[in-house]
Write a protein that binds this DNA or RNA. Structure first.
Lengths: 240, 240
DNA sequence: CGGAGAGTTGAGCAATCTCAATGTCTGTGG
DNA sequence: CCACAGACATTGAGATTGCTCAACTCTCCG
């Protein structure tokens, strides 16, 4: 798309980007080495521990971030405290509501995460000069919208059993950075409480349904968090 | 953004566009008169009656369409027939999943609708040459994503009463083309069945909750479809 | 007037929630 | 190394919300 000019000043990738696994899949794949160099002057890598709040609902946004590893939980709460998780972000998703001054969701590190942070103005400037980058982000946004709608079916029309199976299948499908086939062996990035908030269920119902799937031999659980799926097709069937 | 050159061949708006009320709000607002002329060579205006299917889930997409008036219902169904409405589109939304070969949802005219149809390749070509247009559509997509997430809270965490109130408030807020303040007087674009499928409720529960809101004096209903809201703030409170 | 389609209402039932008790893991201090 | 606190998860029993099934009503239209 963008011709890659090689000259003495720009043919080298920035150090930060050289080791970035999210680069090819994510939005930075739309950038030439020169553009990466210029963008990387405004980025820095940061780490957050599981549980840290990254963004509060309705707070001003000052920066965006590319997810490099880990899982981020996006959620909204009603006045009386009822909470709903409205999305999960994996590498190489972009964190932060583009072109808005305020966040529309709260974001929290669900696991330990690594981010590549870029200031709001820097990214927006680069987008403005670089339609291919905006296009790439557009494709990501459209995929997020597809996934949100897929999830609305789960929330509105599935039973508790199907919801839990769908959640496990979702994680199996996304946790692997390669992002291809669903994975049969993984750690849950969310507590039972968060799973309940994602599925619109109580923690007790989530627990009961997980126990049932275990009793039926569809999954094996060790240490609460680790899941093994002997037969992904059988899990898939339980998704409704 | 785009300088508007006035010359004898291009200063006139296409006839179709002159009377288009969606133009300023919608994506066409990003186009200069010249660009509108060139786009309009590929567009045609079509009407559909309430109930007509516009797009089937998983079917190839051959064209996009701007909604000029009316309401479109986007939905998904599970194998066993359970249905979930995953979005409503009003003027000036763009119908059709951009940059995909297949639709991810089914689309049906919820009311009589007028559309400005453009072939898939024509719109994608114009987008390619015109980053400002893609940007405009990007903003619309981001707003749709915000709305989908807002609705996930309703589906996952609200009671039947709050769901129905939220639905009425949503319609009150969007039905007016001006799209500013919520409207106190409107016709429901959806049957009780569709409302149920939007809210993840049965038709009976929807009916009972509407009756309850009526009994409580929050709304007045005439002829099943027409709604009057004496005090929008009181309806708002019921949304949870 | 009568039939079809859409909506409402009622009664009983089932899935999920609430509340409460119990179990398991992890880290800390003696 | 063990005891214990605290967080998180599981399990049970009863309450509740929303669903199912069935009867009835309203409106439109021939």
């Amino acid at each position: 798309m963008q011709p890659v000019r090689k000259d003495i000043h720009s043919s080298e990738l920035p150090i930060l980007c050289q080791s970035c696994e999210a680069r090819h899949q994510g939005m930075c794949g739309a950038l030439s080495p020169e553009q990466l160099v210029s963008l990387s002057r405004h980025t820095r890598r940061v780490h957050h521990a599981a549980g840290e709040e990254l963004l509060a609902d309705a707070m001003p946004i000052t920066s965006y971030a590319n997810v490099l590893s880990g899982v981020i939980k996006l959620s909204k709460v009603l006045e009386d405290g009822r909470q709903q998780v409205v999305g999960l972000q994996f590498a190489p998703d972009l964190l932060g509501r583009l072109f808005a001054t305020e966040s529309r969701v709260a974001a929290e590190a669900a696991s330990d995460v690594a981010l590549c942070v870029v200031s709001k103005s820097a990214l927006e400037n680069i987008i403005r000069e670089n339609p291919a980058l905006e296009h790439r982000i557009m494709l990501q946004t459209l995929r997020e919208l597809d996934e949100a709608r897929e999830w609305m079916v789960t929330l509105g029309r599935k039973t508790a059993q199907e919801k839990v199976a769908s959640f496990l299948y979702l994680i199996a499908s996304h946790i692997d950075p390669a992002h291809g086939e669903p994975c049969a062996n993984f750690d849950l990035p969310l507590s039972r409480n968060d799973i309940g908030d994602f599925l619109g269920l109580t923690i007790e119902t989530v627990s009961r349904q997980i126990s049932k799937l275990k009793a039926d031999g569809v999954i094996e659980i060790t240490n609460y968090r680790h899941v093994a799926v002997p037969d992904l097709a059988r899990l898939r069937i339980r998704c409704g």
